[in-house]
Design a protein around this nucleic acid. Structure first.
Length: 448
DNA sequence: TCTGGGGTCCTAGGACCC
DNA sequence: TCTGGGGTCCTAGGACCC
């Protein structure tokens, strides 16, 4: 009986969760630094300038779809009717951090969900949802220049839906609060939302649900969670409860370290030479290692994948290899070396390689007392020198990270990943904006 | 011709154990 | 020839998210 708990929840002990996200986030970041883009149709392209991954409202109005490939709108760009920018993730990451810091001022409990989204627990915080939401939007806009929408609900899933409405319904002025509504009123609102707009219902589930007569968020909210559990999964059963106002998904306000770290890229052009592939893989290993050190972890295994085609028209195939790292490590040099060993074991000449990736696995925190597997080694002198080598390596990596943080990624790297500026595997980025906020050389100058 | 990259969680099935 | 039941761990694959 889905309705059993619903009346019970609709009281003042209800949670109040907000979801705030940046509107067209990447485009908005570009506009903060380049005001001439405001009011114009603008898109931001994926790596390699492949397809659209962020669109301004004006670009959406022109019918440009999310993920649409560049060649579909080349002529629009040529004629000056559309501005297309290469992705500048250093800029987006930096503006994201600023936005998240501002949001954190509104609640002691914050979950940073993605680069442009944050949940806040507003339970027990003074003010109506509308008042707080309006304050949030104004402060973020004033302090970072990023436009946002705010959705509020008794569960994360309803906060997500509220955020969706805040964007879609102009009358709401960017803030939608679904807490404290009578059941009939809430169901009436959910009745206008297609089921695939619900968080957790994707392309595959939506048609299956529709086949069972569940085509709106209201239908799903009225379903029996036990039955959904049987026919689908616990995840979707939780979604049903969340839609009923029963909070099942906790706010994860303490960031868990990543369980795996991936760095992979499609190449700007196909490569055939082992040396090119080796440079790319070494470089990707360095970048993955840097991410690993940021979260102060070590990896106990590394996987290298390479993607190739038999001929330009064939489908993509892949090969991969995994090697264990004993002891677990966060060292760029060891990770890059091991990645090269993986690559050597799977490389075969004669193919067009179009992409490669490095994945760090079996990640655990880098504590001196962390139960890491040590090498079996009965020669204590050797063990000691290995320990000293590790200490020296840690110091070296700290220096490397500091230099790269100050002078830009890639300033310092192992010789194995050094390459020419026109290496074929480097990604294509024809129209990237400057690193206005993260590189001294490209700092934005504001004329007052 | 041209279509990204980086994550998480769940489930089913096989290996293995007692 | 007979041939249980229950548990854990691991992995691959599916589905979802931004």
């Amino acid at each position: 009986m889905g309705g059993r708990d619903m009346g019970h929840q609709a009281n003042s002990s209800q949670k109040r969760i907000a979801l705030i996200d940046g509107n067209n986030f990447y485009v908005s970041c570009e506009r903060v630094m380049q005001p001439r883009l405001v009011g114009r149709p603008v898109i931001v392209l994926s790596n390699n300038d492949g397809c659209a991954i962020s669109r301004s409202d004006e670009a959406k109005a022109m019918g440009i779809k999310m993920g649409a490939p560049l060649h579909e709108f080349r002529s629009l760009i040529r004629n000056g009717n559309l501005e297309a920018l290469s992705a500048n993730f250093a800029l987006y990451g930096d503006l994201s951090e600023r936005m998240m810091r501002v949001l954190g001022q509104f609640s002691p409990r914050q979950e940073i969900y993605s680069i442009d989204e944050s949940f806040l627990d507003l339970t027990g915080i003074a003010g109506t949802g509308r008042q707080i939401g309006t304050d949030i939007r104004q402060r973020v806009a004033r302090w970072t220049g990023i436009p946002t929408c705010v959705g509020i609900g008794p569960s994360k899933t309803l906060a997500k839906l509220a955020n969706h409405l805040a964007k879609k319904v102009p009358r709401l002025q960017g803030v939608c609060d679904l807490t404290g509504l009578p059941q009939e009123k809430l169901l009436k609102i959910l009745g206008h939302i297609p089921v695939d707009e619900v968080w957790g219902v994707g392309r595959r589930l939506a048609p299956r649900l529709a086949g069972l007569g569940i085509s709106t968020a209201a239908h799903l909210a009225s379903a029996n969670p036990g039955w959904i559990r049987k026919c689908f999964s616990v995840t979707l059963a939780n979604t049903v409860r969340e839609l009923q106002g029963i909070s099942c998904l906790d706010l994860q306000d303490i960031a868990e370290p990543r369980q795996q770290i991936i760095h992979s890229r499609s190449f700007g052009a196909a490569v055939r030479q082992f040396s090119d592939l080796a440079q790319a893989v070494s470089m990707f290993a360095c970048q993955a290692a840097a991410k690993l050190r940021i979260q102060q972890s070590t990896a106990a295994a590394i996987q290298v994948s390479i993607f190739y085609r038999n001929n330009p028209w064939s489908i993509t195939h892949q090969r991969h290899a995994i090697l264990d790292l004993v002891p677990a490590t966060d060292s760029t040099t060891i990770l890059a070396d091991t990645a090269s060993k993986c690559l050597r074991s799977i490389f075969e000449p004669g193919y067009d390689y179009i992409k490669a990736g490095v994945r760090l696995l079996d990640i655990c925190p880098k504590h001196p007392d962390c139960a890491q597997q040590l090498e079996l080694d009965f020669d204590s002198a050797q063990t000691e020198s290995a320990a000293q080598a590790r200490l020296a390596d840690t110091a070296l990596m700290r220096t490397l990270d500091q230099i790269n943080a100050r002078f830009g990624d890639g300033t310092l790297m192992p010789a194995s990943s050094s390459h020419r500026a026109d290496a074929p595997w480097l990604m294509r980025q024809k129209s990237k904006s400057s690193n206005f906020t993260t590189n001294w050389k490209e700092l934005a100058l504001v004329h007052c």
